[in-house]
Each structure stands twice: as C-alpha cells, then as structure tokens.
Amino acid sequence: MAAVGLRRRTRQLPAMLAAFLVCFVFAIPFLWMILTSLKLPSELFTSPVQVFPRSGVYWEAYTRIWTAGQFGRYFWNSTLVATVATGASVALSVFAAIGFARYKVRGGNYLLLGVLLSQLFPLVLLVPPFYAVMRELRILDTHLALVIAYTSFSLPFSIWMLTGYFRSIPAELEESAMIDGATRLGAQLRVILPLAGPGIAATVIYSFILAWNEFLFATTFISSPELRTLPIGLQSFIGQYSTDWNLLMAGAVVTTVPVIVLFVFLQRYLVAGLTAGAVKG
C-alpha cells in the first residue's frame, strides 16, 4: 500500500512541479503587489530596484486603508451588489438555459447567438445612453442600478455556458424523475442542477468577479460616497499628481484575497468525481 502510494507520488511529481512553476510565474505580479504594500513609502521607487522591504515590514497600509477611506463600507457594498447580481444572473440563466436546452424555442440557436451580439459594442459608448435609462427609471445613485447592469452583462456568458452544459446531460434522467411524480420543470431542476456543478460554478465565479471589479458603471451611476463599491474606493488612492501605492496595493490585496478564498471552496465543484460520477451513474 505504502509502496503504491509512493509510486503514485513519484508519478505525480512532474505535474506538481510544473504546476508550481506555472503558478509562480502567474503570481509574480501579485507577489510584487504584496511586497509593494509592505515597503516603506520611501523604498517604493528605488534605482536599482529593491525587491524586498529593507528597513522592516510596513504593515501600516493595511490598517490605514480601513481608516483613510470608508473601505469597510465599500467592501460591504461590493459584497451586496456582487452577491445579488450573481444570484439574479445565475437564476435567470438557469431558466433560460433549460429553455434553450430542453424545449423547442423557435430560432433558439440564433437567439443564443444574438445574446452574444449585445457584447460586441464598445462599453464606453453605452454609458451615456445607459445613464439616461437609469435616470428615467429614477434609480441613479442606487445599488439597484448596478445590480441591473451587472446581471445583464454577465447573462450572455452564463446562458452560453449553461446551455452547453445542460445539453450534455441526458434527458432520460429527468423522465425517470417525472415518473416519480415530479412536474417536468421540477424534475429538470432536481436532476440538472446537481449535475451541472462545474458549469454553475464557472458561471458564479464569472458573474461575481465581473460585479466585484467593475469600474466604469460604478463610477458613473453612483455618486454618494456611502454607496460606492471597491473599485471606486481603490481609484481614490490614485491621485491627480501621485498615487498612494501602499494603500492602492494593500487595498487590491484585501480586495483579491476574499474572492480567492471563496474560490478555494467553490473549486470543489469543478472537480471530476461529482459530475463524471453522476453522469456515469
């Protein structure tokens, strides 16, 4: 048993090393951000370049971001907006994807293609007409405006991702569930949702990050400081004459880490056993 484990370990070693190397290369900019946030302001720009903090670690940026702005408030706002938008987007796209994948919707595939078309126009140009719409709806300077915008902008991806996924799940499974007395939609939801784990996980991650990081709409639609989201909060460290790199980097690290932690939990659903096993069964 031990010998087998060891052999397996040795076989896995190259993959592990390769993965480590790839991760390291991709993480370099992030490591640079962390190092920057921990350097004294006077050590930031040096020539020759100084990689590590020389005169002790400077933690102050991590305490200052909470007092300098309303970072805690921004954090809460972003969490709220991103969660609601993700929920709405996933719900809408699950239903739409079941519709596309399981029912005969006339011109469904072209409609699906049309969904994508909405993403082909430069976003910066949609801002002025968008502003007018939000104003007419009287929801400027509310989180609702952002939720609506983010939900719509993540829908095309989500619908595409999920439709593809649902189509791969055999419909016979639902029919046997229906024999058990469930309604068709109920059966579909009960059978499809657990099987579509990876697809839904990818959709959730996508929608959440889109809402978490969006800047253009947030800065145009939200004017009250207490309603701002994290990207606007971060922008405030970028000044007209100079950027407060310590705060900007500390803020970015604090913004990034929770999402990564969230993903550590979510990524379970991207793992083989769950779906492959289920489809097999």
């Binding site: 801002v127 800065t219 145009t220 004017s223 606007i232 922008q235 405030s236 970028i238 000044g239 007209q240």
Partner: peptide, 15 residues
C-alpha cells in the same frame, strides 16, 4: 471623487 480624468471629468460630462 478620485481626480483622474476617467473617474472625474468623464462621469461629470455624462451626468
């Protein structure tokens, strides 16, 4: 409000 042109001038223009 952050004073870069894209966070200050553009949003004011649009608004």
């Amino acid at each position: 409000t952050a004073s870069t042109s894209s966070a200050y001038r553009d949003p004011f223009m649009v608004a």
